[in-house]
Structures are given as structure tokens and as C-alpha cells.
Design a protein around this nucleic acid. Structure first.
Length: 811
DNA sequence: AGCACGCCGACT
DNA sequence: GTCGGCGTGCTC
């Protein structure tokens, strides 16, 4: 018996099945999806592989044998193999990348090379003597990497020679590295009084140490990371305290609890409205018949889509089938998770990238073993080994988080439709603002359209005011808040109702500039200006994370006239605290939600402590549902419009509709104030009447005229490398090669090659070519071949070529 | 990706 | 002569 094996080696050239002999005793164990250990390449290195097929004969002459199975319970099934083949073709991704996204990471076998001292002999050279010496000191055997490090030089050749002579022996040892999750914690090992006394004594000489002692005396233990953050200290500060025998650093095992220790009360289902009932029935019937219907559920914000999902899923479960519920980013939708948990309890598994390897593994096993029949999660949940799928629901189907920006560059919507087709399952794409592409498919009959036009409790849609910020400026109002928004906030404070302010930019100022010479500080690694963060008084790069202290004087001309342009969330918070000193505010953006669960904590705080104003970026736009929020303010609606992508209008409209939908979800009516510099723009003006349909009609006409999706397909190719002109040269060579291809019989439009919008990130220069075409599968093959041709050219070896068949953002 | 093989210059 | 550095090509 022959097994076809994809070996775990990240190289395009070996990303194909290799034939191996299956030993007799393994024959009934090895099937599709099995994980095995195989000898590979000249040194017969032992590496892991995945079986993607079996055969009786092979064309290769010199076959090697599979050594053994490895962690065999965590592989994949035949239906997953179909998915792998489909993605390999569709997204031009390597088998290995795809396999790695569908089997839980961390369960992989890690092979390590060990060197064992067999017998001591008189060594002639210095370096050989050292090798034997180090090995002897370490008990006669060591990991090769470690040995190499201790020697400090490349010992490859010597070791090889010594193995030949029989002095040393090489051995492969495997390990799996899912372990208990542990974090470093710090606690006092003296009594509280001693700690505070020491803190007093250290106050002048070592203020950070003193601060740490104070923090520790108030807590039983504190995680090392938190302690350093609170006190602005470093590991060495903790070490100093350890030396003084005041504190102790220890490992604490933390539980893998993806449900964040919450208790869920069981809730009863609501009585559906006629619109909801119709949708539930339609989908349920489709699941029952197994006809694989694809539905576009277009429901206005607050129309009760979640209840439709839950009742549909309940019906599906009652049929003995399972369901996948996809949400844009699970950490942003804790409310959705808790509603599902409370309704369905332990039958729910959750799956998203925020889980630790261990948590992920536990959830994965739960799904595979059939202990869960509902999976709720972000885009990667589409790959969980759920059986007998009845329905796949995708909430906020227009969201760009469904597109993977790493290989495999899949779109979860397309993948969901493929997965569903394997099971004859129904697909439900839901949104208040569907993507233009999906709505078009609903118009042409490819998807079935379900509409829900009224809000669940017959609430009115929030009343929207669009404020022209140009006239505010003319009136002499230079602040970030228009008169209208100011008044509305004041009104809300008086009434004791809550407000959400939205601004798509974090930090304090978008860029900093010297008033006398015009100098603008840029990131040294990226071609982008630095953002000022006031509370830390730092300049930060939002692309690579670079940061430096703020300039007191202009580094170029020495002037102290430094001006801060544009506003971010920090500036809004600053201004609010000044204008409404008695109001409580909380900010939610990448800077405040760095840690796991902090999203949720901020939201809980907002709800429980009745914080007056929540200020946030993107992340406040999605799925939040608070009774007492009656006012939503959008500080600048234009930021997204100015991005040069054909979807910028669509995104702006969706974002504004989404954000304003956060207001008035309870019994009180909601208002939204949208500030803009382009009030005449339809993406802005049509939100006022919540008229998706009119917006769609205008947008689709534009797309048709300009030949953009859904009327064409787009494929982007990116080039990244260390030397700018080589990157450019590669791009040109690539295009040349692709254009020489004979079998292009379709209409193609090419934009580029040009430098990317941000032409350098993390010291890598970036170029791009955008292809518009009729058939992206055909074009993809051509481009993939052009890539291979470029790969063969040594000059371009430094340049990464990335082909993306449904690019998230093109600019 | 890693590893062997092979070619070439430098050093005991 | 031999050691070690790097370019090239293959991996069932």
C-alpha cells in the first residue's frame, strides 16, 4: 500500500503529495487525514506529514516507508480533504497552509535533532575537542541547536564528520507542545507591613520598586505583565525585589475557559413577528429538504435577526443536524455569544483566533467528538470538523473581517457556501447593509432574498442629523464637536441617558508637524507619518508598532512651534473631559483593548457603571445592544470615503448605518448625529432615510459603468522586498511574463505596476498590480504560473509575491 | 526549508 | 593536500 503524504515543510517546491510505503502493521491505521512521521530528504530527517490519499502503486522508484503514525486522533476527514483541494485551487494556497488552518495548531509534532556522544576519541582540532567537552558536560547528549549555540560557530561540518567516524550519533526526538497555560505571577513573600515599610524606604532611590510593593500589598498576587504595566516597571525591577527577598515570581496555571468564567441564565425564546416567522420557516424548510438554498437576510438594525438565527438553529438541532454561526469578530460580539450560551448551553462550542492554542484544541475536540452541535465563531470556525451541517449563518455578511489576509487568503462567505454544498445545508447571509455583491446575487436570483423592515419592538429607526462641518468652521467652531452634537450630548447627560461616539482613528493626532519648517515625523520603518498619543506623550506608528518619545523641539529646525493635526479617539476624550467635566467617559480602541477580554470588561463597565459616554473606533460599531443608549455621534464620517477603494462608499454607508443603529434599541427613541465635510455624498445623505435600496441602486449603476465587482472579478498581486528597485523590477517582470501567456481569451484590465498606497511597511518596499477580469480562476492560473517563472529567477529571490483572488482592500 | 554535493580559495 | 565557505539542486 502506498500513501500520498503532504510533508510539513514550508516550501512551495515540496508542497505536493509524496508517495510512501505503508508498513503492513500500519495499513489499517493509515487513511485520508492521518498524521504520520516520515523520513524526508537526503538526511532522512524525520518530519510530520498528512495523508491525502492512498494507492496500490507508485511511479517513484525509490520509496521510503512511513515510520509511524503521529497524534493520529487529530487529523481530518474526507469531506475536509475536498475542502482542502477546493481551497488549493481557488485561493492558490499551499496544501500545508490550508492544512495548518484546519487542524488545531500546537498539536503538530516538533522534531528536534539530538546529538549523542558515542565514544570518546582523541580529537585533533580545537573545535572538535570543544564539542566533545560540551557534550560530556551535559550528560553525553544535547539538542543540536543548543550545542551549536554553545559553540558559537557553525559546527555543521564537524558534527557530520564525527558522525561518519562514529564518535557521535544523531537522533530525532519528537514532542507535542500543547501544555497547561501558565502565566508568570508575582506575590509578596514578606508580610504587608514589611512591604509597606520597604516601600517607604525605597521611595526616593527606587520609586518603581516602591510602587510595585504597594500594588502587591493590595493584592494576593498580580501577573508579572500587569505589574509592569501598572508601575511602568520592567522585569529587572521585579528581579531587584526578588533579590531583596520581598517578592516571589511563580508560574500559575490558568484554566482554559473560552467562556470567560461567565454564568449564563437560560432565556426563553421570544414570540416572532410575522417577518421573523416567515424567515424562520423559509430557512427551516430549506434545511429540511436539503436543497442547499442560499438566503440573503436583509433586516434593518434592531429587526431581531439574532432571534431568527436562534430559532432557526433550534429547528435545525431538532432535526438532528448541526449549525455554524459566523460572526465578524467574536471578541466584539460578547452579547451574541451570551445569548447563544444562555439559550443552548453546553451544546455550543466557540471558536476564534483569540483562543489560546489549548482552548482552541479543547473546543476543536468537543466539535469533532460530536459533543457540540452549534459552533459560534469568527471566520476560522468554518473549518471546524462539524458533521451533518444543516445550516451556516453568517451575521454581518458585508464585514471585511470575513476575508483572511494571510495564506490561505480565503473569503469565509465563499468557503461557507462550499462547506454547505457538501452537506446540502442552507446558507444564511444576514446584514442590515448587505455587500453590494451579495445583494446583486439576490437580485439575479442566485440568492433568495428575505427582508425584515421593521424593528422588533416597533421602535422607530433613530432620527439622523447630518452636520456640515465646513459651515461649523465658518462659524468659528474649531473643535471636534459641532454645536448640534454638543447640545445633544448635554441633553443626554441631563436625562441620564448614554451616548456612543464613533471615530475611526485611534491616538490623539493623526500627524504632527513643525509650524516653522513643515517637518512631519515619519516612521523609520514604514512610509507613514507617526501618530501622537497624548497620554503616553509618544509618537507611534500604527503599522509596525514603532514608538518614540514625543519631540519637544522640531528635530530639523529646533523650533518649538509643533502643531497637532487631525483628531483621534484620545483627542475626543480629552475634549469631552474639558467640555463636560462632570461626565464619565470610557475609551475603546486598540490601545485600551490590548489584553484579552478587555473589550468585554469595557463594555460591562459601560453598562453597569452607567458611564455617560463611550468613545471608540470600528469596534463600537458592531453588534452592541444597550437599552440606555439613545445618542450616537459620528465625529467624522469622511475618513473611510477618502480611501481609494471601489468599496469605500459601500463601507461608509454600512458603517454609518451600523453605528447609528446602536441608538434607541430599548424603549426610548434614538438619535444619531453624523458630522461630515461632504454632506452631499450619497453614502452619507442616504443614511438619513435609512434607505439601503436607493443606495444600492446608485452604487450598482456606478459599478456597472466603471466595470467593478460584481460585474468583474479582481485579483491583486503584491510584491514585497528589501530593495525598492528590485521589487519594482520583479513586478514589471511578472506582468511581462503574464502578458506573454497565449491562452488569455477574456477581457482583462490591468492597473499597475505601481508602488502600494503605503509604499513601505516594516522596512519592506511594496508594489502592486491590480487585475480586473471576467474569470478570476483562469487568470489566477496564469498569474500563478507567472509567479513560478519569477521564482526561477535568482535575482527576484528576495521578493515575496502574493496573489489574492478576493482582495480585502485595493488601493 | 534543510541538506548534500561540488567547486574554489586559504592555510598548515 | 585539507578545511571551510557558498552556490545549486533535490526531496517520494
Amino acid at each position: 500500500m502506498i500513501a500520498k503524504i503532504i510533508v510539513d515543510n514550508k516550501s512551495k517546491q515540496v508542497d505536493k503529495p509524496f508517495d510512501y510505503l505503508v508498513p503492513k502493521e500500519l495499513e489499517d491505521k493509515i487513511k485520508i487525514g492521518s498524521r504520520v512521521l516520515v523520513p524526508f530528504s537526503s538526511g532522512n530527517r524525520e518530519i510530520e506529514g498528512f495523508c491525502v490519499g492512498t494507492a496500490d502503486t507508485s511511479d517513484s522508484k525509490r520509496l521510503k516507508s512511513i515510520i509511524r503514525t503521529a497524534n493520529d486522533s487529530i487529523g481530518f476527514d474526507e469531506d475536509m480533504l475536498e475542502l482542502i483541494e477546493w481551497m488549493h485551487k481557488k485561493y492558490l494556497a499551499s496544501y500545508l497552509d490550508i492544512i495548518h488552518t484546519i487542524v488545531p495548531s500546537g498539536t503538530a509534532l516538533k522534531t528536534k535533532e539530538w546529538i549523542i556522544l558515542e565514544n570518546k576519541s582523541e580529537e585533533k582540532s580545537e573545535i572538535r575537542r570543544r564539542i566533545t567537552e560540551i557534550l560530556t558536560d551535559n550528560g553525553g547528549s544535547m539538542e543540536f541547536k543548543e550545542l551549536k549555540e554553545m559553540c558559537g560557530v557553525d559546527i555543521q561540518n564537524q558534527v557530520r564528520a564525527m558522525i561518519k567516524e562514529g564518535t557521535l550519533k544523531k537522533e530525532y526526538r519528537q514532542s507535542v507542545d500543547i501544555k497547561d497555560k501558565k502565566i508568570k505571577c508575582v506575590k509578596l513573600i514578606c508580610d504587608r507591613e514589611t512591604a509597606l515599610e520597604s516601600a517607604e524606604n525605597l521611595r526616593r532611590k527606587a520609586p518603581v520598586q516602591a510602587k510595585m510593593l504597594e500594588v502587591l500589598s493590595e493584592n494576593e498576587y498580580v501577573s508579572l505583565a500587569d505589574l509592569q504595566k501598572f508601575t511602568n516597571g520592567s522585569h529587572s525591577t521585579v528581579k531587584a525585589l526578588e533579590k531583596k527577598n520581598l517578592v516571589n515570581v511563580f508560574d500559575m496555571t490558568v484554566e482554559r475557559d473560552p467562556y470567560w468564567n461567565r454564568v449564563f441564565e437560560k432565556t426563553e425564546k421570544m414570540v416572532p413577528t410575522p417577518e421573523q416567522e416567515y424567515a424562520i420557516d423559509e430557512i427551516t424548510n430549506s434545511v429540511k429538504s436539503g436543497d442547499g438554498g442560499i438566503y440573503l437576510l436583509h433586516g434593518v438594525t434592531g429587526s431581531g435577526k439574532t432571534e431568527v438565527f436562534m430559532q432557526t438553529i433550534e429547528n435545525v438541532i431538532n432535526m438532528g443536524k448541526s449549525a455554524i454561526m459566523l460572526v465578524p469578530e467574536i471578541s466584539l460580539t460578547p452579547q451574541m455569544v451570551s445569548r447563544f450560551m444562555s439559550r443552548f448551553g453546553g451544546r455550543v462550542a466557540i471558536f476564534h483566533s483569540g483562543l489560546s492554542a489549548g482552548e482552541r484544541y479543547d473546543q476543536w475536540k468537543k466539535i469533532r467528538d460530536g459533543e457540540a452541535d452549534i459552533v459560534i465563531g469568527a471566520r476560522s470556525a468554518i473549518f471546524t470538523p462539524l458533521k451533518n451541517i444543516g445550516v451556516i449563518i453568517m451575521d454581518e455578511e458585508h464585514s471585511d473581517t470575513y476575508k483572511s489576509d494571510m495564506s490561505p487568503r480565503y473569503h469565509a462567505r465563499e468557503t461557507a457556501i462550499f462547506r454547505a454544498s457538501q452537506f446540502g445545508a442552507a446558507v444564511v447571509l444576514a446584514s442590515a447593509t448587505p455587500s453590494v455583491e451579495s445583494y446583486y446575487k439576490a437580485q439575479t436570483g442566485e440568492y433568495k432574498l428575505l427582508e425584515m423592515n421593521t424593528r422588533y419592538n416597533k421602535n422607530k429607526m433613530p432620527e439622523i442629523s447630518v452636520i456640515d462641518m465646513r459651515s461649523e468652521l465658518e462659524k468659528g467652531n474649531k473643535s471636534m464637536l459641532s454645536g448640534k452634537l454638543y447640545n445633544e450630548i448635554e441633553e443626554n447627560l441631563k436625562r441620564g441617558e448614554q451616548t456612543i461616539l464613533f471615530l475611526n482613528r485611534r491616538g490623539f493626532s493623526t500627524f504632527v508637524s513643525c509650524r516653522s519648517c513643515g517637518y512631519v515625523p515619519h516612521c523609520p520603518n514604514c512610509n507613514i507619518s507617526l501618530t501622537y498619543h497624548k497620554f503616553e506623550d509618544k509618537l507611534k506608528c500604527h503599522y509596525c508598532g514603532y514608538e518614540r518619545p514625543n519631540y519637544k523641539l522640531c528635530p530639523k529646525c529646533g523650533s518649538n512651534y509643533i502643531r497637532y493635526f487631525g483628531g483621534g479617539t484620545q483627542k475626543v476624550e480629552d475634549e469631552l473631559n474639558r467640555l463636560f467635566p462632570n461626565a464619565t467617559t470610557v475609551r475603546m480602541d486598540m490601545d485600551t483593548t490590548g489584553k484579552k477580554q478587555s473589550h468585554e470588561k469595557i463594555l460591562q463597565k459601560f453598562e453597569k457603571d452607567k458611564i455617560d459616554i463611550l468613545i471608540g473606533t470600528q469596534m463600537v460599531a458592531k453588534g452592541l445592544d444597550f437599552e440606555n443608549v439613545t445618542l450616537v455621534g459620528v465625529i467624522t464620517a469622511d475618513t473611510m470615503l477618502n480611501i481609494n477603494d471601489y468599496r469605500s462608499c459601500e463601507r461608509t454607508f454600512a458603517m454609518l448605518e451600523q453605528v447609528s443603529g446602536r441608538a434607541g434599541r430599548g424603549s426610548k427613541e434614538g438619535r444619531a448625529v453624523i458630522q461630515t465635510y461632504t454632506p452631499e455624498h450619497e453614502a452619507v445623505s442616504l443614511v438619513k432615510s435609512h434607505n439601503y435600496r436607493t443606495f444600492y441602486d446608485k452604487e450598482i449603476a456606478k459599478r456597472k459603468l466603471m466595470w467593478y465587482p460584481p460585474f468583474c472579478k479582481i485579483v491583486s498581486v503584491h510584491f514585497q522586498g528589501n530593495v525598492e528597485n528590485i521589487v519594482a523590477k520583479t513586478a514589471k517582470y511578472f506582468l511581462n511574463t503574464a502578458e506573454k501567456t497565449q491562452n488569455i481569451s477574456q477581457k482583462i484590465q490591468i492597473l499597475g505596476p505601481v508602488p502600494s498606497y503605503i509604499s513601505k511597511i516594516k522596512n519592506k518596499y511594496r508594489w502592486q498590480i491590480i487585475f480586473k477580469c471576467e474569470d478570476d480562476d483562469n487568470l489566477g492560473e496564469i498569474l500563478s504560473q507567472a509567479e513560478m517563472t519569477c521564482r526561477k529567477n535568482k535575482e527576484f529571490s528576495d521578493v515575496a509575491i502574493i496573489i489574492d483572488k478576493s482582495p480585502g482592500m485595493i488601493n
